[in-house]
Every structure is written in C-alpha cells, then in structure tokens.
C-alpha cells in the first residue's frame, strides 16, 4: 500500500516539476502572440529610424502586449508595416534597410484590415564633428570634441 502511495506521490512530484519547467522555460523562450488577436489599443509599439554616417537607413518596428517588456507580437493576418508608403519586406518584418528620405521624415504606418495607424519620426540633424583636439592624445591629455550644435531639432506628431 505504501509503495502504491509513494509511486503516486513521485508521479505527482515529477509532473509538477515538468509543468513548472514548461511554464517558466517554455513561456520565457517562445512566448508571443499573433497581432490579429490584439486591438491596437492593447499594443505597445517600439519604433526607430537609424540614419548612419554612410547614409544607410534602418527602420525597425516591434510590438508587445503588456508594455515594452511584455509578450512579443508576431504580425499575422493582413497586419503589416509600411515606411513612407512602402511595405516592409515580408521576410523581414522587424527591421529593414531603406533609402534615406529627402527631408528625413519617416512615416511608419501599422496597416490593419480596418485602420492605418501612422507615427512620424524625423531623423535628427547630422551631428557634424567640427574638431578633435589634440589629434594625437598622450596619456595625460584630455580630448576636446566640438560638433555642430546649431542644427534644428525636429518636431513631429
């Protein structure tokens, strides 16, 4: 009788451990939800435009449920992103390389079956380096950097 009871207890214990491991490990590594199941008002959007010195521009867009560090959202259904009217490549829904806009304004639009939600990002002015002094630094030196701070800071939205 005791053996049967012990066996049942062991199985419960092992089952509990497995369940806990699946719940914590499984959720931490694979948790995501499909965008078509979430209203726009329940989505947190993390958007960025990076304009590099070589004039390449990368745009990234990610969505989460439950705040910035919440469950990630995978685009599904007809949901997709467009940048200045051009769709992100289907194979690269999170980030994409695009040509720089002439006026540095990027409209990122989340396109759904029933709405289009646009956020405007204006790339800041290029922080042009004016001088680096001295140009040869010794161990006891400090470097003075000057850059163009007269650039206009953009406003949007």
């Amino acid at each position: 009788m005791n053996e049967i009871r012990n066996s049942i207890c062991r199985r419960f214990f092992v089952g509990f451990l497995c369940g806990t491991a699946l719940a914590s490990g499984g959720c931490a590594t694979t948790a995501s939800t499909r965008s078509e199941n979430v209203k726009t008002s329940g989505l947190y959007a993390d958007l960025s435009v990076t304009h590099r010195p070589d004039d390449s521009v990368t745009v990234s867009a990610s969505l989460h449920v439950g705040g910035r560090y919440g469950t990630s959202v995978t685009l599904s259904g007809v949901d997709h992103w467009e940048v200045n009217g051009e769709a992100f490549p289907a194979s690269d829904p999170g980030s994409t390389l695009i040509a720089p806009a002439a006026d540095s304004t990027y409209n990122l639009t989340f396109v759904r079956s029933d709405e289009q939600v646009t956020t405007t990002i204006v790339a800041p002015a290029n922080p042009t380096i004016l001088s680096l002094t001295p140009d040869k630094i010794r161990v006891t030196d400090r470097l003075t950097i000057t850059w163009d701070a007269t650039a206009r800071h953009p406003t949007a939205n």
Partner: peptide, 8 residues
C-alpha cells in the same frame, strides 16, 4: 503606449 526614436 510606445516609443519612437530617430538616430543619426
């Protein structure tokens, strides 16, 4: 909610 940023 969310955050949008532009970098150069």
């Amino acid at each position: 909610g969310g955050l949008a940023s532009g970098l150069r």
